[in-house]
Amino acid sequence: MTRYFLSRLRLAVITILGVSLIVFVTSRMSGDVTLLLLPQDASQAEIAAMQHQLGLDAPYYVQYYKFLVNVAHGDFGESLRYREPALGLIMSRLPATLELAFSAFILSTVVGLLLGILSARMRSSWLDYFSRIFSITAQSMPSFWVGIMLILVFAVELHWLPTSGAQGVQYLVLPVVTLALVPIASTLRITRSAMLETLDADYVKFLRVKGLHEQFIVWKHALRNALVPVIAISGLTLGFLIGGTVIVESVFAWPGLGNLMVESIFTRDYPVIQAGVSVTSIFLILLNLAVDLLFGVIDPRVRFG
């Protein structure tokens, strides 16, 4: 287990370095920051002075090294718009986004697993057909449209839930449902097919030979085996959810990271974009590391392999 963990950890570190390089390079490629900071009629000397002040006249490897050192100290520079540390801005918005993403993750995992298991157990029943139609529909509807439709029906027409904002649990319902729809569908489909495959496996036949109760076989043995592929995609699901909040937050005016990122892109607030991308990437890499560890806990072949 330790060796497995170390190899995963090494991969995570390499990935984080890779992300930092991409963030660094894309930010240099997307234009000269000094032109943005200085007035249009600035002289060559003024530009050179600014570049020197920002350290942009140094060779790239020196700049990258400095960037890494700064990042390691949590310094992503100041927001051009708000004139405060970019990382602080990101961190103040992160909890709202995580609230949304994790709620959607829990919802999609619970509902997807349950529907998937039941569809496999009751193959070709009305529930199975419902699940199939549901997952195709859910995966083909764009989230901004779903969000607007949900607002129209449940907020505008029925007045059951607020249209937008974030002042309590009732504000969470519509954005979370909107965000969770696609992952519910994918979790459902993977669980269903994994469950069908497992229930057909020889070891399940042998469990029946042993005279064990069918419920016991399904919920202890088959479920745990079917969980392996579900866990395998949960890292991807989390990535999808955190990325997906950008659109959903715009639709529901959710005061999270996504909204901040969209604003920052429109106003070319580079330090905030860099900090946002770095923080979410590192966060996702750590989550995937956790998923890999969970993999090892659940599957002894991974642990001892």
Partner: peptide
């Protein structure tokens, strides 16, 4: 009953 292939007769987990 004993099944044909012992490698897949037991739950791997």
């Amino acid at each position: 009953m004993i099944l044909q292939d012992p490698m897949v007769s037991l739950d791997p987990l």
